[in-house]
Design a protein around this nucleic acid. Structure first.
Length: 592
DNA sequence: GCCGTTTTCGGCCCGACTGTTTTCAGTCG
């Protein structure tokens, strides 16, 4: 892909890499942190920063972004103009590429990996295996038998586990563990935290937090529950295990805290790390100090306040801690970075699963769905929806049994017939129409106009270059008969990146043509993704959250779409699926 | 490298746990 079209994601990955390379060269750790934060900030922006870097006054615009200063701004501009960052190239030439994989092994940090490289000539996983096998690894400082054994196991774990786990896989597992542990005698409170509670699209490990009157029993239950392969740590308050269930291999941590500290601990364990750092910095400015036991007066003593019996200003619940820091409560989904940014989005109240009243993207046996029209309507009714849209695939999606025009006309009649017969829910005749690579749609306008609702989605040519993808999607968005742009980038987690259009152009087009952008709630898609939702809302776009239902269970993916929406700051008013029947149907008809 | 309701210099969150140590370094979140 030409670098002139590089997306923010690619730029972010360069800075993330630079941060790790710097770590391995033993650079200043604050610079390492700054690059790593810069990478996260870049990835979360929806405006095209490479394009921005070529504009008048670029440096000023870039440094206006929190986390981007002179240095990173100049590097972005350098990248935009010369298609290269000299420091990046220089680091790549100094540090062997394979060392990054060694750094990825759990338990191995920059200090150890650097020593392996400098002292033993390790340049990758194969070299590490070699010095373990021939025993020469023992020459490194602090490298005893136990540590070597742990490294071997961690390497095996890394090779067997597929990296981060999709939200939709991790959530049911965490809920099952949560239920089991809540049943242990003495447990007063127990809940999962971490990136799962924040609703991130992928999860690194499972974090559980508990209050109990019998800590020994809970610790024992945790370390011996079904699927525990290895106990990694078993301390007074913190235990870690490697868990294997349903073919999934994942690390799980349990932290036991006193009830009086539950809020502070939940906050700490929910993260993000960056959010915690921001809060702790903010606390210091208020002459307070924040840790997982509570918010305490800062007294410049060396030992932790809770160990000296100092009374906390706040600790029992999260709300009290935010409040004592002069902040509105920040919902977990908005805790990726600075709490102040979350503040603006929370005022009106984020969307919730119970707000959703319609499913507008569903397939039947007419194409690749498992349910008939009636079964689909019945399942939607059970969920309290007032409207279900039948949107089977169009002719180009041949593998999915896409309908040719004649079949679609017959299908429209069948849907309308069912709508007349089934009481208690409106059944709309629609289509998920393929957006062809040139931006044209799969049916002619006469046929599209006969549909109650049109969801236009890209399914093919998903490696198209960004400029062509932007043109393609904008053209579909601006088509007067299209209501919703379905899964806009076509990505599939974790492997398929999908299209990388200039999202800000999509947002502009969608806001201008009153077309809604879909958050596809399937956990393999979550497309729009969180950062895109935020950008779309800033551009005042309408959002649709749909489950892309193929079978009844798919309705249950709604919560993942909701979490993604919340991470983008979505409120009910901006989401068409929350509207009452009259308002929604009026909006749909406005495009007919 | 980033940042500033004292600061454009001098800071940069805080604690648990492990393993290898006779008092602590490294990693993690």
């Amino acid at each position: 892909m030409p670098k002139g079209n590089a997306s923010n994601a690619e730029l972010a990955s360069i800075f993330a890499t630079m941060s790790q390379l710097l770590e391995l060269t033993g650079a200043n750790r604050f610079k390492v942190n700054a690059y790593s934060r810069g990478a996260r900030v870049i990835e979360s922006r929806t405006e095209d920063l490479v394009a921005l870097a070529l504009e008048e006054g670029a440096k000023k615009k870039l440094t206006a972004i929190d986390g981007i200063g002179q240095g990173i701004a100049e590097a972005i501009i350098e990248f935009a103009t010369s298609e290269d960052i000299a420091e990046h190239d220089e680091l790549l030439s100094r540090v062997p590429a394979g060392l990054m994989q060694v750094l990825d092994i759990p338990g191995l940090g920059p200090k150890t990996v650097r020593a392996m490289w400098q002292e033993m000539g390790v340049e990758g996983i194969a070299d590490l295996k070699r010095i373990i096998d021939d025993g020469s690894i023992k020459e490194l400082p602090r490298m005893g038998a136990k540590t070597i054994e742990n490294i071997k196991e961690a390497m095996e774990f890394q090779a067997r586990s597929g990296g981060r786990t999709p939200l939709g896989i991790a959530m049911p597992l965490a809920e099952a563990v949560q239920e089991e542990l809540r049943a242990v005698k003495g447990v007063k409170q127990l809940q999962f935290a971490g990136s799962l509670r924040r609703g991130r699209e992928t999860i690194g490990d499972l974090d559980f937090l508990a209050c109990t009157t019998k800590p020994d029993d809970l610790r024992e239950a945790f370390c011996t529950m079904e699927g525990v392969e290895k106990v990694l740590a078993r301390g007074e308050t913190k235990s870690s295990v490697r868990l294997k269930r349903d073919g999934l291999l994942i690390q799980a941590d349990l932290r036991i805290v006193p009830a009086s500290s539950f809020g502070a601990a939940l906050m700490y364990f929910t993260g993000s790390k960056e959010h915690n750092v921001r809060l702790r910095e903010r606390a210091l400015k208020h002459d307070l100090t924040l840790n997982e036991y509570g918010l305490f007066p800062e007294d410049d003593e060396d030992t932790p306040p809770q160990s000296r019996g100092v009374k906390a200003v706040a600790s029992k619940d999260e709300e009290a801690i935010y409040s004592a820091l002069d902040l509105e409560f920040v919902p977990p989904e908005l805790r990726e970075d600075d709490p102040v940014e979350g503040l603006a989005a929370t005022g009106a109240g984020l969307i919730d699963v119970s707000d959703i009243k319609a499913e507008l993207h569903a397939h039947t046996t007419a194409s690749d769905g498992r349910m008939s029209i009636e079964e689909l309507a019945g399942a939607a009714k059970v969920r309290g929806f007032h409207t279900i849209a039948v949107t089977d695939h169009s002719v180009s999606s041949a593998i999915a049994g896409g309908l040719d025009p004649d079949r679609l006309r017959a299908h429209i009649d069948a849907v309308h017939e069912a709508d007349g017969r089934v009481k208690g829910i409106s059944i709309l005749a629609g289509s998920e129409v393929d957006i062809k690579p040139d931006g044209s749609l799969d049916y002619d306008d006469d046929l599209l106009a006969a549909l109650d609702i049109v969801v236009a989605s890209p399914h093919s040519s998903l490696a198209q270059d960004p400029k062509a993808a932007t043109k393609r999607l904008v053209s579909a968005i601006e088509h007067p008969l299209v209501h919703i742009l379905g899964h806009p980038t076509g990505r599939l987690l974790p492997k398929r990146a999908g299209l990388s259009p200039d999202m800000s152009k999509l947002f502009e087009a969608a806001a201008g043509s009153d077309t809604a952008l879909e958050i596809n709630a399937h956990w393999k898609r979550l497309d729009l993704r969180d950062a895109h939702v935020r950008g779309a809302l800033e551009a005042e776009c309408l959002i649709a959250i749909d489950c892309d239902v193929h079978s009844e269970g798919h309705f249950d993916n709604l919560r993942y779409g909701i979490l993604t929406g919340r991470r983008g700051g979505l409120t009910p008013a901006s989401c068409i699926n929350t509207w009452g029947k009259a308002k929604l149907h009026k909006w749909l008809k406005s495009k007919r």
